[in-house]
Amino acid sequence: MQKSFIIKRIIYAIFIFFVVLTLNFFIPRLGVDDPAERYYPPQGNMSDIEYEIIKQVTREQYGFDVSTFKQYTNYVEGLLRFDLGTSFRTGNPKVSTLIAERLPWTLVLSVSNLVISLCIGLIFGTVAAWKRGRWQDSLLLNLSTISVALPAFFIALILSFYFGFELELFPAYTNPNMVSQFDWSWEAIKVVFFNAALPIISMSIGGIIGYSQRTRNSVIAVTNEDFVLTARAKGLSQNKVLFKHTLRNAMLPIVTAVGMSLSGLIGGAVIIEQIFNWNGMGTLFLEANNTNDYPLMMGIMLFMSTIAILANLIVELTYSLLDPRITVGEKR
């Protein structure tokens, strides 16, 4: 891999980060009324002068008492110190602290979802491709059609009502003491996975079908390649042809897809978290939005954007490692 290629991609990622950072700062402000008027409308018989004092106090409290440009430079300065600012919540907790508290819980869902979707998707997709045109393949195609019509939140509600409330196989919503009582004991870990079962299943159904389709298409494409025909002509067993030659070569687009899905790892579960009362990043963002907690909203958005930028960078670099033609193309 060319050094210049890597440096270019990193510089490009840094540039994108600053664009995102700037938009992240200004876009929320486009919709913000003067917080002073929003939080404290004129009361009682106060004079205009008294009301101005109150508005000024509120602006100071929320950091709106300096020019927008100054606010922006303060924000960038803070970021250079890895300070995402303080939330408007009582006690003004650090945004980074709030994110750190919620991130692991979202990762439980999203990483489990990714692993399950990928593993089962690879199995289904390979089987469907290998049995192309037979019932396994038809089943996958039909499931794909159905999954498009059933969004994850709808599946989540159905699972919550049927498997949670009616059959009571899994918790219909998260045990409210799960987070506060978590102590890394085996019992606590079991409780987490028990409570996570329905959210993960809700999220995974679409993922499984998606990866299955990708795998199927990729495997079929590779199956028609000359080297696979050669392998077969050499008299290799079905398993060797499938695993040693076909599947390995079919993995490239799957790896790309996995990389791309990393960017949605944090923010992809907002509604699922809401349905199951799961205390993760998605619900943190909703809380910030509901309470006009702009520093928290900006912090979460920036964090998610940074993850997406990093994920894209990793995918690009990995892709060029796996497929040297990409680097060659850059060189030309």
């Binding site: 079991k190 028990f194 993960i200």
Partner: peptide, 21 residues
Amino acid sequence: MLKKIMSLTLVFISLFLVGCS
């Protein structure tokens, strides 16, 4: 490879099931 994938899947599914109480 398929075996490895299936094992990983089973580990995750087991985690949910052991949680079942």
